[in-house]
Every structure is written in C-alpha cells, then in structure tokens.
Simulated assay, not measured.
Amino acid sequence: MIAPIRQMARIAMVTGVAVGALLTAACSQTAEAPKARTEFSIGWSIYAGWMPWPYAQQAGIVKKWADKYGITIKVVQVNDYVESVNQYTAGKLDGVTVANMDALTIPAAGGKDTSAIIVGDYSNGNDGILVKGGGDLKSLKGQSINLAELSVSHYLLARGLSSVGLQLKDVRTVNTGDADIVGAFASPDVKAAAAWNPQLTAMKALPGAGQVFSSADIPGEILDLLCVDTATLKANPKLGKALAGIWYETTALMTRQDAQGKAARAAMAKLAGASPEAFDGQLSTTYLYSDPKAAVAATDSPALVTTMARVRDFSFSRGLFKGATSADAVGMSFPGNETLGDPQRVTLRFDDSFMKMAAEGKL
C-alpha cells in the first residue's frame, strides 16, 4: 500500500524541531561552513513520486552518476516521513525528499538554509474532499469535516472552501488520522471528509460518497521536492549535478511505455510494498516532472510564488510558525531573484540551476 505519508508531517511539526527556533535560528547558526566532501546521504520515505530514488540505487543509476563526479551517494530509507525530515533538519542527512509545505514549516522555519533543487511532481488527484448524499462544497457550511488537522488535507479544505466564498471558520474540523479516516467516513454519523490516497480511493467506493474537490483542482500546489542543505550544495556542486542526473535518467526510464518501463515501475512497486497495478494507480494521479524542461518552467513560473504565498499564509494562520508575528518571518527565494518574506532570513530557496543543466544536456 503506497500511503503518501509525507503529508503526516503537518500533524507532528507543531512539536518538532521548527518550534521555538523560528525567529532566531536563521541568523544564529554558528556551525562551521561545510567543506568539499565525497560522501553524501539522501533520505527518502515511501511515496509513489519518490520511488525513483531507491529504484535508481537498486538499478545502479545512483552509482553511475556518483562515479561520474567522483563522489559516493547513499540513498537512505527512513520509515517515518516526519523522522526523515527531522533527521535532515538536524544535519544527519544531506538531503531529503519532502513536500513543499513541510520544507517550509520544518527545516526552513527552523532556520536550516535549504535548497529545493528538484521539483519532482505534484498531486493531481491524490488528495480529495468527499461528501455523502449528493452535497457540494457550499453544503459544507456549518458542517463537520473529518481530516488530519494541520495536514495537506486541511490546506486542501481551505482552498476548496475559498473557491466557493467560504472560510475554515465556516466549518468544524474533526482531527482524524490517516489510519482511522476510512473507518470514520464509513460511519453513518460522518457526512464529509478529506483524505489522500490510497485511503481516498477506498472512501470513494463507499455508498453515497461523492468527490467535491481534489488536488487536481489546484494543480501544482501540493508539490514534492528533493531538498539539499544549501551550504553543503554550495561547497559541493557535484552533488547537485549527480542528483539531477539520477532523477532524470530514472524518470525517463519509468515513464517509457515498453517492457523496460513496465519492469522499472514494477520494481518500484515492489520496493513500496505494492502491486504494479496499485503503483500505476498512484502514478495516474501524480503529475511527474520527468522532463527537466517542464520542471524548469514550473519552477520559474510566477505561479510557484503564488502557491508558496498561499502555503505560508495558511501555515502561519494555523500556528505553524510558532513565535512569529508575521507570515513574512520565513524568507523564500525563487529564480529571477524574487523573494517572499524577510530577505534577510531566506531559508528556503527554489534553485533551478541543476534542472536547467539537465534540460540543456550539460550534466
């Protein structure tokens, strides 16, 4: 079962490493600047859009690109997604697969200068809002909605409500973990819920359930990234080049509609503990940026700035920037020297340089 457990970070982050460090960490780091190295570790956890990484290691693609640049890269599985992000934030990993909201609210908000060097995919229907009995988004006013609070489901609900002129204050949310959401929605007392796959698919099959909003209605907003420590990347640009080479060679292979592509996807499914059919189903609602030119275009688009403004405003409004008096407390930078928030505290950087190298055949 390929549960996108990346999204559960929002539930734990309130008590995680970001709390308390928000306002001072970015300007108080005293660690010695990283030096040139030859060994690096990248953390990942199970999610359809991140399975190219362990497959690449298994297939020798990681070694191929690492050897090209005279380095060693260990692709490390961390069973708990939150723990993988926390390990990265604590400096135990050089990079990590992480969703955009979590990159902002955990390492960046905790003062760890982080660069998103690969925009890998976005949820294109993996997340949805369901209502029983033929209701719509407007019918949610005054109703209770079961979901994982402070998760991407919560963000999706806010976006869905705003599309029909409603706000979060117009509904009541009932905090329900992903392990319990299917059972909760099956109860006659629960009329509405928000969830992600594979739970979402199971809930859709329940009698009377209808989907009224999904991540496909806000394409490009729920992003999955590969992030690397900025200082480490600056001291070791070969790492960024190798990682870009690994990603695009692997995704080019897995998207092929021939025997080799099918075999690669089946191997990824096995690594994820899923059947090939289930894995392909997850990929069908995941927009994979397998073409580096498309990834560069998405990263350079003004739409990304708009998306991250929405994400940071939501995060601040729900208290995820503990100690901050403004959503501008955490700075973000984008291609073209555009910034959001405090330009003196930029700790999340969208860096398109390695994706561009891949697009231009310069890796």
Rank of each mutant, 00 (worst) to 15 (best):
A59F: 05
G281N: 05
E338I: 14
G331K: 00
S315C: 12
I61D: 08
G160D: 04
P4V: 13
Q199F: 09
D280M: 05
E149I: 14
P302S: 04
V305I: 15
W44M: 03
R318T: 15
A259V: 15
Y289T: 06
F314G: 13
D80N: 14
G110T: 10
G70D: 05
I42W: 02
L243I: 07
V174C: 09
A66F: 00
D217E: 11
Y55M: 11
T255R: 13
M254W: 12
T250I: 04
F213P: 09
R10N: 04
A192G: 10
P4S: 11
A103I: 09
A244Y: 00
A192N: 08
G110Q: 10
A99T: 10
Q344S: 15
K92I: 00
A103Y: 05
R318Q: 15
C227Y: 01
Q57D: 14
A298T: 07
G210A: 11
T30G: 14
L22H: 06
G16H: 02
I246G: 02
T232R: 00
L363M: 11
V131A: 08
A21H: 10
T306R: 01
K362L: 14
I42T: 02
I222P: 05
K169D: 15
E360F: 09
G95Q: 07
C27T: 13
L168F: 07
L271E: 11
A303H: 04
P292N: 06
S151P: 12
Y122V: 02
S326C: 10
V85G: 08
P237D: 00
Q58R: 15
D328W: 02
L243G: 02
I71N: 05
Y81S: 11
T97Y: 07
I46L: 10
E249M: 07
A324T: 09
K191H: 09
V212S: 03
D127R: 01
T173G: 08
E249K: 03
E32N: 11
Y287L: 13
K270N: 14
A309N: 08
R318L: 14
L156F: 08
N197P: 06
M268G: 13
T250A: 14
L340P: 05
A25L: 10
R256L: 15
S84H: 07
I218E: 02
T89D: 07
G60R: 09
G220Y: 06
T89A: 10
A184F: 04
A264S: 15
A278W: 00
R310H: 11
D136G: 12
A33H: 08
S28P: 06
K238V: 03
R349T: 15
M268C: 14
T24E: 05
G323L: 13
A298L: 06
G134Q: 09
S153K: 01
A192S: 13
K64Y: 03
A303Q: 04
A59R: 08
E149L: 10
T173L: 14
L320T: 10
G49V: 02
A295W: 02
K238F: 00
S275W: 07
R10T: 04
A216W: 03
D328Q: 10
G120E: 12
A59Q: 05
D313V: 12
T230N: 00
A358S: 12
D291M: 01
L226P: 00
V98S: 07
A148P: 05
Y47W: 08
